[in-house]
Simulated assay, not measured.
Amino acid sequence: MRTTRASCRAPGGYRPRRARAEEMPLSLLPVTAHSAEALRDTCRELSNHVERNAAPWLPDLAYTLATRRTPLPHRIALVVRDRVRFARWPSAYLR
């Protein structure tokens, strides 16, 4: 059976409201690499990935970065609440 967006709505057409930025959880995004140059490249790739894909929810991304990536000697971590704030950090770091 194919599920459509309309069939996923609650009875009565109720749609949950979107959370305001201050209601979103803070996420710690750790990024590591072998060198400073590689760290900048990794940050750029991560930023591009989030820009291209609307799907990654920041808490899920934070979990993956913290548990599925190998800790390497060059590190940076950022605390973000939403995608808008996340989109700003790489340009400041990559200058």
Rank of each mutant, 00 (worst) to 15 (best):
R9F: 13
V80F: 07
M24R: 15
P90Y: 12
A55M: 11
L61C: 01
R81Y: 02
T67G: 04
A77W: 11
A6I: 08
E45I: 11
D82V: 00
R5T: 04
E23D: 15
A62W: 05
S91M: 10
Y93T: 12
W89T: 11
E23M: 05
R95Q: 10
R9A: 14
N53P: 01
R83F: 02
W57E: 04
A54R: 10
T70Y: 03
A55H: 07
T3N: 06
P71Q: 01
S7T: 06
R95M: 03
R95F: 02
L65C: 00
R40F: 10
I76L: 08
P71C: 00
F86H: 10
L78R: 05
L58H: 13
R2L: 03
P73L: 10
L28W: 15
R40E: 04
A33R: 02
R81C: 09
E45R: 15
H49T: 13
L94C: 08
S35W: 07
R95N: 05
R5M: 00
P90V: 02
R18P: 02
L39E: 03
E22S: 12
H34A: 14
L26I: 12
Y63L: 14
S91I: 10
E37Q: 13
T70L: 11
E23G: 11
F86G: 02
P90F: 09
C43W: 15
L39C: 05
L46I: 06
E23W: 01
L78N: 00
L94S: 04
A33P: 03
H74M: 05
A55I: 08
A33E: 07
P59M: 05
P25A: 14
A10K: 04
A54D: 06
L72R: 04
A21L: 03
T64N: 09
R9K: 15
M1I: 07
S7V: 00
R20Y: 13
N48D: 15
L39R: 13
G13A: 09
L94H: 10
A21H: 07
V84H: 12
W57R: 06
V79C: 10
A36T: 13
R88F: 07
A54V: 13
R18D: 06
L28H: 14
R15C: 00
M1V: 10
P71K: 06
P56D: 06
T32K: 02
D82H: 13
R15A: 04
T70G: 01
R2A: 07
S91P: 04
G13C: 12
P16M: 06
